Amino acid sequence: MADRRPTESQEWVSERIDSWIETYKKSMLTPVILALVAAQQPATIANVAEGIASTTDWQITERGLYRTIRRLRDQGLLISTDVDSPRTGAKRQELSLTPLGVQFLSGVTANLVALPGDTNS
């Protein structure tokens, strides 16, 4: 049976790709969240989490998602409102874009680059 271990060059490329993808995901999480909220306003955090998973296949921890949403609120891009949850009466957060969030998302979206041959855009 032939040795199927990757070559040193293949390992190097694979590591660079993985590193780039992690950087890309961190950078793109903000506009992804803002776009999901914009599409569903008001959106629950559960809706945002489902949207991230279904549109990107990215895995994000609940803690990471809450931390990012808190940062976006602190930056004035999102506003959250506590509302009663149906049947339980427990409070849940509904998210909406602020005018600043709308401007930010519009600016980022206008500057996204589609790669030649990209069939996802």
Score class of each variant (00 low, 15 high):
M1R: 09
R4V: 08
R4F: 11
T7Q: 10
E8F: 01
E11F: 02
S14L: 04
R16H: 07
R16G: 01
W20S: 09
T23G: 09
K25N: 13
S27Y: 10
V32Q: 11
I33L: 07
L34Y: 01
A35G: 05
L36Y: 02
V37I: 10
V37T: 07
A38H: 11
P42H: 10
T44F: 03
A46Q: 14
A49S: 14
A49I: 10
E50I: 12
A53E: 15
S54C: 03
W58V: 05
Q59R: 14
T61C: 04
E62M: 06
L65K: 07
Y66N: 14
T68G: 06
I69T: 15
L72V: 12
L72K: 01
Q75D: 14
Q75C: 07
G76P: 04
L77F: 15
I79L: 14
S80L: 06
S80D: 13
D82N: 13
V83N: 02
V83A: 11
D84T: 10
S85Y: 10
S85Q: 15
T88N: 06
K91T: 04
L95I: 01
L95Y: 15
S96T: 12
T98F: 01
P99T: 01
L100D: 09
V102Q: 08
Q103I: 00
L105S: 03
L105K: 04
T109S: 10
V113W: 11
V113Y: 09
L115H: 06
L115G: 03
D118I: 09
D118A: 02
T119L: 10
N120G: 01
S121N: 10
S121H: 07
